[in-house]
Amino acid sequence: MNKIRKYSRHPGLNMGSTDPETHEAAETLLFGFWVFLMSDLVLFALLFADYAAQSQHGVAGGPTPGDILDLKNPFIETMLLLVSSFTFGLAALAMKYRQDRTRLVFWLVVTFALGAGFVGLEVYDFTDMISKGHGPQTSGFLSAFFLLVGTHGIHVSSGLIWLLVLLVQVFVFGLNRNVKTRLMRLAIFWHMLDVVWIGIFTFVYLFGVA
């Protein structure tokens, strides 16, 4: 492995010398997408700050976080999302080293299933809360809760749609440079959503119960 050309690293998995042309194209594209993600993080930071205030000051005689949050489903959701991050990593490795469409598609489908499970469980949780009379119209606290957790859920859902589109493109175009760089961008989007979820399960669910 004696490479003369050295590569700088961008976020996410690097194609490096396995596909130098894609690596070079990805460098700027991923930087651009990374900047977008930073802007997206501001969105979440603001929703967290809003939740921090509203969950304390906006209860308005209604239920408090401790009254209505439990840990069972969030724990399952956490594990689903975490494992899906890992399987996306395996998909990326399959794309990088094997140029292996079957293996890539397999791991992408697994990732999709796990993500869909996460969204499904979250939707179930939300409808359950609403049916118990704890909908977002109840109090400032619950408005902030639904907005923060729901925004994350919408992000995951759009990631799922994106994943479907890319699966179609893998079949239509094969693993060309466009498809590869798009998968690389979706990968860092997906990992970043998992990072945001760490904040949610810690500061919303665990803090709420503890």
């Binding site: 809003d50 205030a53 509203q54 000051h57 906006g58 209860v59 308005a60 209604g62 977002p136 119209q137 109840t138 109090s139 400032g140 606290f141 408005s143 902030a144 639904f146 907005l147």
Partner: peptide, 15 residues
């Protein structure tokens, strides 16, 4: 019908 900035039910316009 959320309550982020309303006068009632824990909304806070200062937010």
């Amino acid at each position: 019908g959320f309550h982020f900035f309303t006068n009632a039910l824990g909304g806070n316009m200062m937010n």
